[in-house]
Design a protein around this nucleic acid. Sequence first.
DNA 1: CACGCTTATATTTTT
DNA 2: TATAAGCGTG
Length: 678
Amino acid sequence: MFDDDLNAEQLAAATHGQGPLLIVAGAGTGKTTTLAARVAHLLAGGVRPERMLLLTFSRRAAREMLTRAGRLSGHPEASRVWGGTFHAVANRLLRLHGRALGLRPDFTVLDQGDAADVMDLLREELGFAERERRFPRKSTLASVYSRTVNAGERLDAVVKRHYPWCLDELEGMRSIFARYTERKRAGNVLDYDDLLLFWKALVASPDTGAPVAAMFDHVLVDEYQDTNALQADILEGMRPVGTARNLTVVGDDAQAIYGFRAATVRNILEFPERFPGATVVKLERNFRSTPEILTSSNAVIALSPQRHEKTLWTSRPAGGVPTLRACLDEAEQSDSVCRAVLEHRERGVPLKEQAVLFRAAHHSGLLEVELMRRNIPFVKYGGLKFLEAAHVKDALAMLRVLENPWDEVAWFRVLQLPEGMGPATARRLMDDLSVRGEAGASPSPMVNLLDHPFSVPVRAADGVRELRSALAGCLEGDLLKPAGQLERLRMYLEPVIARRYDAPVARVADLDQLATLAQGYETRGRFLSELTLDPPSSTSELAGPPLLDEDWLVLSTIHSAKGLEWDVVHVIHAADGMIPSDMATGDDDEIEEERRLLYVAMTRARDALHITWPQRYYRRPKGLEDPHTFAQVSRFLTDDVRSTFEEQGPGVVRLDEAPAGAVAGVADVDALLSDLFG
DNA sequence: CACGCTTATATTTTT
DNA sequence: TATAAGCGTG
């Protein structure tokens, strides 16, 4: 059936029988194929799809794998396999079985931004906002909290190691975090970390543990190197009981890049000890890249002091040598990438088979401008801010109070929408509506708002009335579906947006996008949780079908490129301070993770790899500071590594190739001189 | 107390 | 660059 397409190791992994299985799969060794084949094998062997659990890093990965497994096995119901991220599966399980833990099944989910907003409320209430000393900002509080939970370490240890500048405020943080938990419980909301914590509690509980684990005959986990301690505990609890310990994990310690989420390679390294009797299969044959690309990639990872017990090899025929290009500055880098992209397209590689990868979402800014100028279509993955835009949050907050009337942050936002309503009045009104009452108590704050009299300042009265009728409109019978509700909310929000924000037309258009997104959903609750657990990851996912028949270049953060591959890969900003990021050079572990990041980026390439770095960065002048700084090539590209590249640079640019306007004007020469002597 | 304006500041990666 | 805090006005 599928045996023909697999090599011996892949076949061994795919057809493994009972017991724990660790597949150590190097980059490009056919990991997805193998995992899909294993699912297909199990399906063909009679395992019922709904008794299999496939945990992946993104919904997209799960979908892709299950489609392939369905095709391979010919099983008509392969899509009934439980597939998705840890968080999405937790959400599903907890709505089914959470009651046993004291959870109401209609909880709403806070994303990290919402969590930060709750912390901000608490910071205000507890008086940390007065600026006698600098207190950590809300997003820092949310990161510290999350990292502590996911690592399963004590707060003081986490702060000391990863947030040393916050050590003075440890006590304040502790008190905020304690209240934070109370608030979440009272408001019937769970954050991302709660989803995992309660899943763990579910499997640890004597009442629910065994039945939940017994739901599945096989559990399979992709990208295991990027799971954390909490997730490993969950898997231990989910391990199907009895003699059959059918847990399969796939991963590559050389590609571990989620340390900031408390992921630990110890999970993969210690798998055999934690799950005794484990079979280990190594996949070392690379099917993806040319030998030249592999040589360069291996050279990068070989310098890692940590042990990666694989050596990738390929039998692909020789191709081009990867290029490393020193550019004068960011402008020349953008220009150089555009040229290379177009050249490859001329030679028959469509834009879609090319990607530009970078460390941080904003690194592509200048390139995006240049691509637009040249009419080169592109989509960008990672760092998408759609759900973070204020007006989108406004609409979602309205849906959230409808769904869960005890959701405090959502109310706080909604009640400030009418003109004349600010934070103080909103808080007072929330008290009047008893938003902080116990979730499930009647009458609910929504009923209080809609049916009972309350007082607001005169100048806000009209606005609040309109808000009230918009919310009431959404609760009326005919509009029960989320898309219809959003349509009603749009009518209310249009003037609100026009009053509060600039570019109102574009913002209202975003609400239409949101409504389009909502069209596939029957219930508001489902729509909201899917949106927070699987947010649109690219501009194209939002733009929808019109783009689909076109060709476009892919722009992506390296993190979002995990598991993907292209014919041609361009890695930009390979300068020290970018890769590794200046933010991540605190300790050796962080630096090593940055090295793996570069490795991941390079190993995405099938046929051609181009790395560029600008020698000079222009910075916003702060006061009288020098407006530009000189950069070094990434420390990971040592001389030995560089010898595997074909080096290019401004020094070897042929004159007829010199990009017009980007190099060598009198101004550039003078700027250089003033740098030297100024 | 809301709101609009000015000024300081820190800045990664994602479920 | 974008956001948050600070300040003055109505």
